[in-house]
Design a protein around this nucleic acid. Structure first.
Lengths: 342, 342
DNA sequence: CTATTTTGTTTAAACGATTAAACAGTCAAT
DNA sequence: ATTGACTGTTTAATCGTTTAAACAAAATAG
């Protein structure tokens, strides 16, 4: 590696102290510095192609201008879209983003938090996996600024940005009821994550309030390490028998992806046989022959809010900010359309 | 922020010098340190919950264990999948990843490179936008380890990992020819990026070798800042008139996404009226009513190779490594199936 | 019983920046 | 001529590590 130019190198060239160079390049001590010298310093810096060493600067100033982002999986479009928004917002404020994927695994999440904290990130944005409460409490103890996103733990007082999942699921089921569906299924993950439980709660609550006689077999809770096969099995169980469900809510984009593929392959007619709603958007939902009705999370607003809150928290504005946004229900053919009858 | 524990704090507690603490915690000077003292140091470190300050360590050791990743857009599934693989491989080697999206814009790319270099990343993995040659040359001059991915500049001697785009496009067109298609269109970006040009070259070459009389109107080159509307216009032009194309190659997942949606909406029958192949995979391609034949890039291998080469380069193993992988053609219904006839 | 080696630990400089405080010189006011 | 204020710059400490070199004490050798 070619020798990097330091402040001292510039100082030597110009014949002044490193301190003066620092003052000039940081536009400090404005009026006090000899203009001609300042210009020479700037010229020399440019000529030598000086780049400040952020590591040294961070050590001294105790500020890295880095934000850590921990999501479940950066390759999941939900999280990568969020990541992109966060990246842009961070950039506007001169921060860069280090990311990591926890795979919904608390051990990985813990390791990531540790790595990022050791790297002295100024703050964290985290979509916490289940059973990671202790890590969150650790961050609170250590007074490390952070914002939870997408999920949070109601038992812990933290900043967070999420949607009202109860309401979102409720609205989806209500929509099923409104279009006359009577046997409404849901496929979700068996999980201690609050936001998923809220979805289930919203689902059950809407069924109850619509006076639909609920059957426990309608609710399929998959292991988080779900596979294609689990989803297919769940769908089979929902559709088999004399009383198949006539509506189905997928509680995540991943489940919807596999689920739709399977529905496609077994020739279920959507929406005639089965009305379908999915959480989260994705291009895939558009290309299904009956474009899917889906619950649209306000990603842009969520990402922006997360950064805004994080910056405020880092700036010692220590009040708690908890944001519950409302998701939209984008109604399309999978619940209203007519399947092209042949 | 709660005061962070430093080596010195441990040293004071135990009553030894900071140096000794450093030696112990880094398992250096193995045999030479009094076991009892070493244990006390370790215990105290644990008790005080010491975390090493990576920033300080990096300053001293001139190594950050950080890799910079610059892609066009992290929210594009192609890049986020790649990012995930790179993340995992980096992690295996104890590196973390800082990322940025260039939006195919050389100015953004330059700013990102500068930011990441200032942060003293140990190396970079870059999908360079067009007109960013000077930035790449700068990295070479500065002897900063990097690997290009997905794209590269044939005129510049660099490490890179990419697929043979010429061959991939050629194979796709050959497949069209094999199934008897005679009027084969392509929608791509007008761009100076080598990999896209290679796709075009492969397309043209295959047409020629199959002795298909090429018509220039078959090749649609969109402005990179393409919109939904441009794609729709291009498709209209290809399909309108007395001699519409009977096969169509989309040169990216983004184009395919919009394109398929439009084909869907105007009721084109795939593959009867129009056989379709897309570059890159995505869930969307699976859910199209005729699952798409697509060119599958070996993302896993590409990401792994990129990290491997980068680590070698960082380790001063200065030989040039240029990898051209072969893409696969996954043949499905959009080129072979029968549209369900009604 | 010295001389040498080994063991265990400390000292101090360094990485590259920042920044409070000190300093020297000039200028104006009394 | 003395004082004080201002201008322009340097000195030196510091951030938290690492690590070569120095050092002291104990063990071993001759």
């Amino acid at each position: 590696m070619v020798k990097k130019i330091s402040l001292k190198d510039i100082a030597n060239q110009v014949g002044v102290s490193a301190a003066l160079v620092s003052y000039v390049l940081n536009n400090q001590k404005e009026g006090r510095i000899n203009k001609e010298v300042a210009q020479r310093i700037r010229d020399t810096a440019k000529r030598l192609n000086y780049r400040t060493n952020q590591v040294a600067k961070s050590l001294k100033t105790n500020k890295t201008f880095t934000i850590g982002l921990i999501v479940a999986d950066i390759s999941n479009p939900f999280f990568s879209s969020l990541a992109r928004i966060i990246e842009d917002e961070a950039d506007k404020n001169n921060y860069t983003v280090i990311f990591g994927s926890s795979d919904e695994n608390p051990d990985k999440s813990e390791k990531l938090i540790e790595t990022l904290v050791n790297r002295q990130v100024d703050g964290l944005i985290i979509a916490p996996p289940q059973n990671s409460e202790s890590q969150i409490n650790y961050l609170i103890e250590q007074d490390i600024p952070f914002v939870l996103i997408d999920r949070y733990f109601p038992a812990i007082e933290t900043n967070y940005v999420a949607i009202d999942n109860y309401k979102a699921a409720y609205t989806a089921v209500q929509h099923f009821a409104d279009i006359g569906r009577k046997r409404i299924g849901m496929i979700t993950y068996e999980s201690a994550i609050f936001n998923l439980n809220e979805r289930t709660r919203g689902y059950l609550s809407a069924i109850k309030e619509n006076k639909i006689p609920f059957e426990t077999t309608w609710l399929k809770e998959l292991r988080p390490n779900n596979t294609k096969l689990c989803i297919e099995k769940a769908i089979n169980e929902l559709l088999d028998g004399p009383q198949p469900v006539d509506a189905l809510l997928f509680s995540s984009n991943i489940i919807a992806g596999w689920g739709l593929k399977y529905l496609n392959s077994i020739g279920i007619k959507v929406p005639d046989q089965l009305a379908v709603i999915s959480f989260d958007e994705s291009e895939a939902l558009d290309l299904f022959y009956a474009p899917l009705t889906y619950i649209k999370q306000p990603l842009e607003e969520m990402g922006q809010a997360a950064i805004k809150i994080l910056l405020e928290t880092m700036g010692k504005n220590n009040k708690l900010v908890q944001v519950n946004m409302e998701a939209g229900l984008i109604i399309r053919e999978s619940t209203t359309g007519q399947t092209e009858l042949n």
